[in-house]
Amino acid sequence: MSDTTPDRTHTDTAAQDVETQGGDRAQYGMCAALAGLGIILLVNSAQLAPVASTNDSLGPKVIPTVLGILLLITSVFYAVDIHRGGVGAADEGEDVDLSAKADWKTVGLLVVIFAASAAFMEPLGWVIAGTLLFSGSAYALGNRHVIRGLLVGLAISLATFYAFAIGLGVNLPAGILQGIL
């Protein structure tokens, strides 16, 4: 049971390979995405109408503006680090087999479960749709205890329903359980 794949996580060859190729283009894409998100935040915060209030001296523009500026600064520092040959360290605690193929059946099942719960949210309500979402996701990810999955999904859905309703004052759709919950 020996692995013949060479371990490149503790050598400088991975960094040298990326450096000779002109940097990792995928990482530059992440820099562009961060910069784009920062620009979107800055543009949208500039379009906010000024609010004159004695209770709020800062107004609604401050936080998105600060976050937009911080995202732009982060993307610049990240791009400089990539250009200098910075390579992220490999995750040492993960036991992911990089040579294994993607499990598209599980991904497809999760997409179907998510879409179904979104479609059933209004007619059935959050508690039933959430129960299907949580228990269906657990099933798709390998849980074969259907009854236990449904009970845990129901508990999570009820807990989040009441946490939103009582704790935050946000009413999630009750659907067919209107008047019962």
Score class of each variant (00 low, 15 high):
D3Y: 15
P6I: 08
R8K: 14
H10P: 06
D12L: 13
T13E: 14
Q21F: 12
G22T: 05
G23V: 04
D24C: 04
Q27E: 15
G29M: 04
A33Y: 09
L34T: 05
L37Y: 07
L37G: 04
G38N: 02
G38S: 03
I39M: 11
I40P: 01
I40K: 00
V43E: 14
A49E: 13
V51R: 14
A52V: 15
A52P: 01
T54M: 11
D56S: 13
D56T: 06
V62N: 03
V62T: 08
P64I: 01
P64Y: 00
V66F: 05
V66N: 12
I73Y: 08
S75H: 03
S75I: 01
V76K: 03
V80Y: 02
D81S: 08
H83M: 08
H83W: 08
G85L: 03
A89H: 10
A90M: 08
D91M: 14
E92T: 11
D95I: 10
S99C: 09
A100L: 00
K105Q: 12
K105F: 08
L110V: 12
L110H: 07
V112S: 09
I113Y: 05
A115N: 01
A118F: 05
A118D: 11
A119W: 14
A119M: 13
M121L: 15
G125R: 05
G130M: 10
T131P: 10
L132G: 11
F134Y: 12
S135I: 03
S135D: 06
S137G: 10
S137Y: 01
A140H: 03
A140M: 08
H145Q: 11
V146Y: 13
L150W: 01
L151D: 02
L151K: 04
G153V: 00
A155G: 15
I156N: 06
I156L: 14
L158S: 07
L158Y: 11
T160N: 02
A165S: 15
I166A: 05
G167D: 12
L168A: 09
L172S: 00
A174W: 02
Q178W: 12
G179F: 00
I180F: 15
L181D: 12
L181V: 15
